[in-house]
Amino acid sequence: MDQHTLGSLTWLRLMRFGNQSNQLSNDFLKRFQITTAQFDVLMQISTFQPLTQSELAEKVIVTQGGMSRMLARLEQDGYITRKQDWKTKTIVLSNKGKDILDIAMPAQLAFQTSFFNEALTEEETKTLYTLLTKIHKNSENKQLPPL
């Protein structure tokens, strides 16, 4: 098998795993009444709060319109609070948001970790992490090829 074919098959396998993992995570997180995207947004807010909507949008894979709708829903559900300090509007977790993350985060991390721990040795997991990090760093500066 040539390098081009192997690279294409590897990319497809990564895409399939990512999609499958997201679907399983959505199913898993339903018990906490949140989606994978909401979990990601809550985790980012928890880590970097207070932050603006624009700062948050840079950290997650949600469109600006999708972000506005999601934040409105998270605020309505009581997971976040929006504050305004003069012209700057920021987002922070509410106590309810902190409480759901305290429960959902360890459970979600254990669930996701099980994909690796049940299939790979510790050394294989380290190697996979190193390789994926290398690919990710290469993709950060990747330019689109001309048509």
Rank of each mutant, 00 (worst) to 15 (best):
37 A>I: 13
38 Q>D: 01
41 V>D: 08
41 V>C: 08
41 V>E: 06
42 L>Q: 01
43 M>P: 03
43 M>R: 06
44 Q>K: 06
47 T>P: 04
49 Q>M: 02
49 Q>P: 02
49 Q>H: 02
51 L>T: 06
51 L>E: 11
54 S>P: 15
57 A>M: 07
60 V>Q: 01
61 I>F: 14
63 T>S: 10
64 Q>P: 07
64 Q>A: 08
68 S>W: 09
69 R>S: 10
69 R>T: 12
72 A>Q: 11
72 A>I: 07
74 L>C: 06
74 L>W: 07
75 E>K: 05
75 E>V: 04
79 Y>H: 01
80 I>D: 03
80 I>T: 02
82 R>K: 08
83 K>R: 14
84 Q>Y: 12
86 W>R: 15
86 W>K: 15
86 W>D: 15
89 K>H: 09
89 K>A: 11
91 I>K: 04
91 I>R: 07
97 G>D: 05
98 K>E: 13
98 K>I: 10
98 K>C: 11
100 I>R: 05
103 I>T: 09
104 A>D: 00
104 A>G: 00
104 A>P: 00
105 M>C: 13
105 M>H: 11
106 P>V: 00
107 A>I: 09
108 Q>A: 00
111 F>N: 05
111 F>M: 05
111 F>K: 05
112 Q>C: 10
114 S>H: 06
115 F>G: 02
116 F>Y: 09
117 N>F: 13
117 N>E: 14
118 E>P: 09
120 L>P: 06
120 L>N: 03
121 T>K: 01
121 T>W: 04
122 E>H: 12
122 E>S: 11
123 E>W: 06
123 E>N: 07
124 E>V: 08
125 T>F: 14
126 K>P: 03
